[in-house]
Amino acid sequence: MNFDAFITCAVTGSGQSHKKSDKVPVTPKQIAEACIEAAKEGAAIAHIHVRDPETGAPARDVALYKEVVDRVRSSDTDVILNLTAGMGGDLILGNVESPLPLGNGTDMAGATERVAHVEELLPEICTLDCGTMNFAEADYVMTNTPGMLRAMAARIRDCGVKPEVEVFDTGHLWLCKELVDEGLILNDPVLVQLCMGIPYGAPNDPNSLMAMVNNIPKDWVFSMFTIGRMQLPYVAQAVLTGGNVRVGLEDNIWLEKGVKASNGDLVARANTILSAMNVNILTPAEVRAKLNLKKRG
C-alpha cells in the first residue's frame, strides 16, 4: 500500500476523444488551462500532448508545445510538466494485401526530431514509450524500435530531463531494465508508467497487473492507469499495489455513466477516492523531492 501518492493528469492525448466530448482541450490555450485546472484539484503532474488547433488532430509542432509550456509556467499555479515524446512513431500500413505504400496518417520521425521539443523547452519529465505495439486498429502499429529508444533515451538523459517510461506490456519492462543497465536511463529513481488495458497490450485484470508490478525493482517509482470506465477504480488499485495515480481525458471522458468529465472533475474524484483511503496526496514540491527533479521555468 502506498500512503503517499501523487496524481498525474493526462489532459488531452492524441486520439479521437475530442470528437466525443467538447471538454477535451484542443488549442494550446485550452490545454494550458486544463493543466492549471487539474493542478488546482490536486494533480502534481500534467501530462501533455498537443493538437492542431484547427482540426484537433495530433501534432508535434514545437511552437504548439512552447505556447502550452509558456502559458503554464507564467501562471501562478505550480505543476510539473510532462511532455509526450511518443509522437513520430505512427506506422499505418496500406492494407492486408498491399502493406506498401504506407497509408495516410503515417508519421515516422527520427530520434532528434521526436525529442526536439523536449530539448528546447526542458520540461521536468517527458515520456518514453518503451516498445512497439499493436492497437485495436487493423493496419496501425505504434513503432518504437530498440535502436530508436536508445537514441531518444540518450538525448533525454543528456538534456537533464527525467523520462517517464511508458510500459504497455511485460517486454517493455524488460527493455526498460536494459536501458537502465546501459546507463541510458538513470536510476535516480527510474519512473515507470504502467499503461494497462490498451489493446493489445497487458490486460487490466489483477493478475496481469500484478505480473507487471512484481517485476518492477523495489527502488523504482511507478504509476498506473487504464482506459474507459475502469480509470477511476484503478485509482484505488494503484495505491493498493504500491503505485501512484494517473487520470485524465486522454484515457477516459466520463465521470460516471452519462456524465462527461473535465480534467478537473477526474482529478477531484481521484482526490476524493485517495483521501477516503487515508492516502496523503503529494504536492509538486514533494514529488520533485521524491523523483529528484530539476524545477524549470
Score class of each variant (00 low, 15 high):
residue 112 T to N: 12
residue 175 L to H: 08
residue 254 W to H: 10
residue 182 E to V: 06
residue 123 P to S: 06
residue 98 S to E: 15
residue 236 A to G: 15
residue 2 N to E: 07
residue 147 G to A: 13
residue 164 E to S: 12
residue 87 M to F: 13
residue 274 L to V: 09
residue 162 K to P: 03
residue 214 N to R: 11
residue 212 M to T: 04
residue 220 W to E: 03
residue 71 R to N: 06
residue 109 A to Q: 15
residue 121 L to N: 00
residue 229 R to Y: 09
residue 284 P to V: 12
residue 247 V to K: 07
residue 222 F to L: 04
residue 288 R to M: 06
residue 16 Q to Y: 15
residue 48 I to L: 13
residue 212 M to D: 04
residue 210 M to Y: 14
residue 284 P to W: 07
residue 103 G to T: 07
residue 237 Q to V: 14
residue 204 N to A: 14
residue 12 T to G: 05
residue 154 A to R: 15
residue 283 T to P: 08
residue 205 D to Y: 10
residue 196 M to L: 14
residue 264 G to K: 13
residue 209 L to C: 02
residue 200 Y to D: 08
residue 174 W to T: 10
residue 123 P to W: 11
residue 67 E to L: 00
residue 84 T to M: 03
residue 46 A to V: 11
residue 226 T to V: 04
residue 275 S to N: 12
residue 229 R to W: 13
residue 281 I to K: 07
residue 104 N to G: 10
residue 124 E to W: 12
residue 40 K to C: 06
residue 152 M to E: 09
residue 4 D to Y: 10
residue 200 Y to T: 11
residue 44 A to T: 08
residue 104 N to K: 14
residue 62 V to G: 03
residue 40 K to P: 01
residue 201 G to W: 02
residue 156 I to C: 01
residue 222 F to S: 01
residue 286 E to A: 05
residue 66 K to N: 08
residue 268 A to L: 06
residue 12 T to V: 06
residue 97 E to S: 11
residue 90 D to Y: 08
residue 186 L to H: 05
residue 69 V to Q: 02
residue 7 I to S: 05
residue 263 N to G: 08
residue 164 E to L: 12
residue 34 A to N: 09
residue 121 L to K: 07
residue 148 M to D: 14
residue 166 E to T: 00
residue 262 S to T: 14
residue 241 T to S: 15
residue 153 A to Y: 02
residue 243 G to A: 04
residue 226 T to L: 05
residue 75 S to M: 07
residue 258 G to C: 00
residue 76 D to V: 09
residue 296 R to N: 06
residue 75 S to G: 02
residue 31 I to C: 05
residue 75 S to D: 03
residue 132 T to E: 04
residue 33 E to H: 10
residue 202 A to D: 02
residue 158 D to T: 05
residue 136 A to G: 14
residue 292 N to A: 09
residue 248 G to F: 03
residue 116 A to C: 11
residue 176 C to Y: 00
